[in-house]
Amino acid sequence: MMETIRSLGIWGLNTFERLGRGHLFLLHLLTGIPALFFRFSLVIQQLYSVGVLSVFLILISGLFVGMVLGLQGYNTLVDFGAEESLGVLVALSLVRELGPVVSALLFAGRAGSALTAEIGLMKSTEQLSGMEMMAIDPIRRVIAPRFLAGLISMPLLAAIFSAVGVFGGFLVGHGLLGVDDGAFWSQMQVKTDWFDDVFNGVIKSMVFGFVVTWIALFEGYDAIPTSEGVGRATTRTVVHSAFAILGLDFVLTALMFGDE
């Protein structure tokens, strides 16, 4: 019995210690951000590996999610004779929820895990340590550019996801199911608000980008420097990111759309 309580205590202490280290890590890397504006080429390289390499996945997923929304939405709406509202349904679901959330989940799987693996590997091959001994702060030189790249990429990817998704919904709704295209677009425009819907969606994706990149980089930096440790850290990145995204999504949704 005492042993169980003790192990619970150890677990709690470890968790808090890790949380503390994570926040110190974040503070440290934020101090490296201003210098990056004078060496933006470092960020561009990372924008390529974090952002550009995720575009294809986002495009395909966005298109299919939009198409499925079109099909499912039509089948439900047609019962109420409201199939003209298909555009609203597709657009609002994508812009408010699915765009930011699904693209953040995909981003965590594609770019987040890659970041963790990369940083973890650099740690286990003593590259980070080596930089420190060359008087180069690895958190500022290696981690900060990746963080900024994640922060910039995420809203862009989410926007691409939503835009392609709306197009996918239109393809199915108009092309396959014959919903009037005028009604599709005009209803969508009437009911979708630039600030309440689109802009709040963008804010969501920025928050997700921040958190996912932070988790991914910290897991890599804090990984046990063995191949097994890096592997576990990569898994943790995906799992923790998913929890963080879905949990934060609820909080943000409640804050943004709760009082309607």
Partner: peptide, 10 residues
Amino acid sequence: ALFVLAMKVS
């Protein structure tokens, strides 16, 4: 994409 969302969708 953001522009499309702003102009076309909303």
